[in-house]
Design a protein around this nucleic acid. Structure first.
Length: 244
DNA sequence: ATGCATGAGTG
DNA sequence: ACTCATGCATA
């Protein structure tokens, strides 16, 4: 994967992202347990309280066999025609994702919490991530490259979180901007079935074709275009990809 | 957990 | 105009 720029950059400064001031808590805090935190994935409520509900006991016991993860540098494998594939084999990633999820839960931290907490790690070029991304990482529904890029970051967070489980929890919460919410267009089942049929025949329809499809299904052309883009991207996700 | 969308790169 | 990494909104 020649993957040049894995951009794990900070979102544009304009993001309504919470600016964790001072000492950023390891975890944004929060309502542990519940997986469904709606609205404001960023805002860990203005709660103070302890972020870590992990018991000393759980901390104590030595974390299982620290998987001596694979070397970052792929072994100079035999000459496979495959251009430099980051030899982080799927199995290792799969195993890591699973361990990550289990330990995260053990720590009583939600996916959103992890995402927001990443910023406090202050790793170069790594800001916060959304609940969606953490969820996708755990469920392996990201591209192989994306998984590989995120693994070290999440590994780092996990290490710190487990090490220093008892942290002071700065409450730092704010940001309450009454922003108008974006509306999500929803494509009805019949139309979706048609799109899938078209996709099966031609995954990359021309602009004209897209226009024709949009017209036939009475959908906006852009909606159709994006649908195809997302469909293609979906095929590349680790979990569904032909390769894995 | 996942559908539709945005924006940075790239050609 | 596409690919990719990501995210808001919502199921």
């Amino acid at each position: 994967w020649q993957d040049p720029s894995l951009r794990l950059s900070w979102g544009p400064p304009a993001l309504p992202c919470c600016s964790l001031p001072g000492a950023p808590p390891l975890f944004p805090l929060g309502r542990h347990q519940q997986q469904q935190q709606h609205a404001c994935a960023q805002g860990a409520g203005p709660m103070a309280g302890k972020a870590c509900k992990m018991t000393m006991a759980s901390m104590a016991h030595a974390p299982p066999p620290p998987p001596p993860s694979t070397a970052p540098v792929p072994a100079p494998h035999a000459g496979l025609p495959c251009l430099g594939d980051v030899e982080s084999d799927p199995r290792e990633l799969e195993a890591f994702a699973e361990r990550f999820k289990q330990r995260r839960i053990k720590l009583g931290v939600t996916q959103a919490d992890v995402g927001a907490a990443l910023a406090s790690l202050k790793l170069p070029g790594v800001g916060s991530l959304s609940q969606s991304t953490i969820c996708r990482f755990e469920s392996l529904t990201l591209s192989h490259n994306n998984m590989i890029a995120l693994k070290p970051v999440l590994q780092a967070w996990l290490d710190e979180a487990e090490a220093a489980c008892r942290e002071r929890s700065a409450q730092a919460e704010l940001l309450r901007g009454a922003e108008r919410k974006r509306k999500r267009t929803s494509i009805a089942a019949p139309e979706k079935r048609s799109l899938e049929a078209y996709f099966a025949l031609q995954p990359r329809p021309s602009s004209e074709k897209i226009a024709a499809i949009a017209d036939k299904l009475e959908l906006k052309k852009n909606v159709v275009r994006v649908w195809f883009c997302n469909q293609r991207q979906k095929q590349k996700r680790m979990k569904y990809s032909a390769g894995h």
